[in-house]
C-alpha cells in the first residue's frame, strides 16, 4: 500500500479511537451541563481522581484499572450526590446558581487538584495492564490496544447510559428536569432527587473516564485542565442534551485532531478543532443533534 494513504487511514482510525476517549471524558458534562444546566467545570478534576484511584489499586494491589473503576463506581456516585446536595443547598435553592455556582465549581476544581498534588505530588504516574503496549495488526492497519480497549469501554458506557435515560422513568425525568422543574413535580417526581441521581451518575462516569485516561497516557494532577475546553466544546458541538450528538462531536474532533497532528503537527490540533466548533455553531447554533 502507498505510504501516505496508509498514514492517512491510520490517522483516521486513531482519531476514531481518540474520539471514543473524548466521549468518555465528556459524557459526565453532557449530563451535568447538557441536561441539568449545571456548569460543572470541576469534572476533569474528578476524572483525575478516578485516574489516581486506578493508579493506587494498580500499584499497591495489582488490580486492573478498568476493574477498579467498576468497583469505585458506587463511591463516585455517592460523591456526586453529595456535591450536588451542597450545590443545591448553597446556591440552587436560593436561585443563586449561575455565577456563584460557577465559582463553586471553580473552587472545587482547585481543591481537588491541590489535594491530588499534596497526596501524589506532581510527577507523572502510570498503570500496568496487559493491553497497554501490544497492538492489533490488521494488514496495514495498526490498532494499539491501549486505545482500542478504552474505546470499547467508552462506547459501552455511552450506550448503557443512553438506554437508561430513554427507557427508564428516572432517566426520562432527568432529560426533562431542567426544562420545567414545577411541571416535573406535577408528574409526581421530586426534581431535586432527580437532579441528585443525575449528578451522581455524572460523577460515576468520571471513575471510568479516569481509568481510561491513565490507560491512554501518564497523568499528573493538573492535566485535567487541558480537557476542560475540549469537553465543553464537544458538548456544545454535539448539541446539549444529546448523547448521540456528543459522540459524533467527540469522534469528529478526535479524527480532525489526529489528522492535523499527523500532517501539520500536534500544535495545530486545538486551533483546528475549535475552528470546527465555530463553523458548526455558525451553521447550526443548537449543535449537531441539539433540539
Amino acid at each position: 500500500m502507498d505510504g501516505s494513504l496508509g498514514l492517512l487511514l491510520n490517522a483516521v482510525v486513531s482519531g476514531l479511537l481518540l474520539g471514543g476517549f473524548y466521549a468518555a471524558v465528556s459524557i459526565g458534562v453532557a449530563i451535568s451541563f447538557g441536561m441539568l444546566d449545571i456548569v460543572n467545570i470541576a469534572h476533569p478534576a474528578f476524572i483525575l481522581l478516578g485516574s489516581y484511584v486506578a493508579y493506587l489499586a494498580n500499584t499497591l494491589l495489582g488490580i486492573d484499572p478498568l476493574l477498579t473503576a467498576v468497583i469505585a463506581l458506587p463511591a463516585f456516585y455517592l460523591l456526586g450526590m453529595a456535591v450536588y446536595q451542597v450545590y443545591y443547598l448553597s446556591f440552587e435553592r436560593r436561585q443563586d446558581q449561575s455565577l456563584r455556582g460557577l465559582s463553586f465549581f471553580f473552587g472545587l476544581l482547585f481543591i481537588a487538584e491541590v489535594t491530588l498534588v499534596l497526596i501524589f505530588g506532581v510527577d507523572y504516574r502510570l498503570v500496568q495492564a496487559p493491553y497497554i503496549g501490544p497492538s492489533l495488526h490488521l494488514g496495514w492497519l495498526e490498532l494499539p490496544l491501549r486505545l482500542l480497549v478504552p474505546f470499547l469501554v467508552s462506547m459501552l458506557m455511552v450506550v448503557g447510559l443512553q438506554l437508561f435515560l430513554t427507557r427508564s422513568f428516572t432517566g426520562r425525568a432527568i432529560e426533562a428536569v431542567a426544562q420545567d422543574p414545577l411541571a416535573l413535580r406535577l408528574m409526581a417526581a421530586d426534581p431535586t432527587r432527580i437532579k441528585r441521581v443525575a449528578f451522581g451518575l455524572s460523577f460515576a462516569t468520571a471513575a471510568i473516564a479516569g481509568a481510561i485516561l491513565i490507560i491512554i497516557q501518564p497523568v499528573e494532577p493538573s492535566i485535567g485542565r487541558e480537557y476542560i475546553g475540549r469537553i465543553f466544546a464537544i458538548c456544545v458541538l454535539g448539541g446539549l442534551g444529546s448523547f448521540s450528538g456528543m459522540v459524533i462531536a467527540a469522534v469528529t474532533l478526535g479524527v480532525v485532531e489526529s489528522l492535523t497532528a499527523t500532517f501539520f503537527g500536534p500544535s495545530w490540533a486545538p486551533a483546528v478543532s475549535f475552528g470546527v466548533l465555530l463553523v458548526t455553531l455558525a451553521v447550526r447554533p443548537s449543535g449537531i443533534l441539539g433540539r
Binding site: R172, A176, D180, L182, M187, A188, A189
Partner: peptide, 27 residues
C-alpha cells in the same frame, strides 16, 4: 390528583410520546 396548569407547562424539548411517558411517572 392530576393538575393541568395554566400555560400547560409541557416539556417543550421532549417529544409528544416522551411527555406522555413522563405523565406516567407516578408508580
Amino acid at each position: 390528583i392530576a393538575f393541568v396548569p395554566e400555560g400547560r407547562r409541557l416539556f417543550p424539548k421532549q417529544t409528544v410520546t416522551e411527555n406522555l411517558l413522563l405523565g406516567a411517572y407516578r408508580p
